[in-house]
Simulated assay, not measured.
Amino acid sequence: MANQKRRSYSKEFKLDVIQQSYQRDNIRELADELGINPGLIYAWRSAYKNQSQQSFPGKGIPSRTPEEKELAELKKELADVRMERDILKKAMGIFTKNNG
Rank of each mutant, 00 (worst) to 15 (best):
Tyr48Asn: 11
Met83His: 08
Met1Ser: 06
Arg64Ile: 10
Gly60Phe: 01
Arg45Leu: 03
Gln54Lys: 12
Gln23Lys: 15
Arg45Gln: 10
Lys69Thr: 08
Ile94Cys: 05
Arg45Phe: 04
Glu68Asp: 09
Lys49Glu: 13
Ile41Asp: 11
Arg28His: 09
Thr96Leu: 15
Gln54Cys: 12
Ala47Ser: 13
Arg7Ala: 14
Arg24Cys: 14
Ser63Ile: 05
Lys11Leu: 07
Glu29Ser: 15
Lys97Ser: 14
Val81Gln: 07
Pro66Gln: 01
Arg24Met: 07
Gln54Thr: 14
Ile94Asp: 10
Arg64Tyr: 08
Ala91His: 07
Asp32Pro: 00
Phe13Lys: 00
Lys5Cys: 12
Met1Glu: 03
Met1Phe: 06
Asn37Gly: 03
Pro62Leu: 11
Asp16Cys: 13
Pro38Tyr: 04
Lys76Asn: 05
Lys97Gln: 12
Tyr42Val: 08
Asn37His: 15
Ala47Glu: 13
Gly58Glu: 01
Glu68Ile: 03
Ile18Asp: 03
Leu74Ser: 07
Ser63Tyr: 11
Thr96Pro: 04
Ser63Trp: 14
Leu30Glu: 08
Asp32Met: 05
Lys49Thr: 11
Ser52Glu: 14
Pro57Trp: 01
Arg7Asp: 14
Leu74Ala: 10
Ala43Cys: 04
Phe95Thr: 15
Tyr22Pro: 00
Ile27Glu: 02
Leu40Asp: 11
Arg6Ile: 15
Gln19Val: 14
Leu15Phe: 15
Ser52Leu: 08
Asp80Lys: 07
Gln4Asp: 12
Gly39Met: 12
